[in-house]
């Protein structure tokens, strides 16, 4: 709703890229980077997983669910909803596949 005043230049939020790119299996154990961007830890977790997926189709909901065992399906959906509203992610081949905007 808020009209943005152009010309301010891009003070974009510095998205911290965690240095643990090789560590794919792990669950987020809280920590500092779970609180970046003003997202909830759940939202961050979802975003992080989507970011880590480099396929052209992004990450499917089923895969997210599988990787986020213990997280409520509705919570995941809400996180996806929020993230796509914010523009962090977008749906690709269908509404169940998401890709991160700052991936490439």
């Amino acid at each position: 709703n808020a009209q943005s005043t152009p010309g301010g230049g891009g003070t974009s939020v510095a998205l911290s890229t965690p240095a643990r790119a090789g560590n794919t299996g792990g669950s987020f154990t809280g920590g500092v980077d779970a609180q970046t961007n003003g997202l909830t830890p759940h939202q961050n977790q979802v975003l992080f997983l989507i970011k880590s997926c480099k396929g052209s189709e992004g990450m499917g909901f089923e895969e997210l669910k599988a990787r986020l065992q213990g997280m409520n399906v509705n919570t995941i959906k809400q996180a996806l909803d929020f993230l796509s509203n914010e523009g962090h992610i977008y749906s690709t081949v269908d509404d169940d596949h998401y890709k991160s905007t700052d991936g490439d």
């Binding site: 943005s4 891009g10 796509s84 523009g87 992610i89 977008y90 749906s91 890709k99 905007t101």
Partner: peptide, 20 residues
């Protein structure tokens, strides 16, 4: 594929609008 590009463009715009 066109849909993907469109979604991506829309998402990037949203993102930009959030972080002015």
């Amino acid at each position: 594929l066109e849909r993907i590009q469109r979604n991506k463009a829309a998402a990037l715009q949203k993102l930009a609008a959030r972080h002015v």
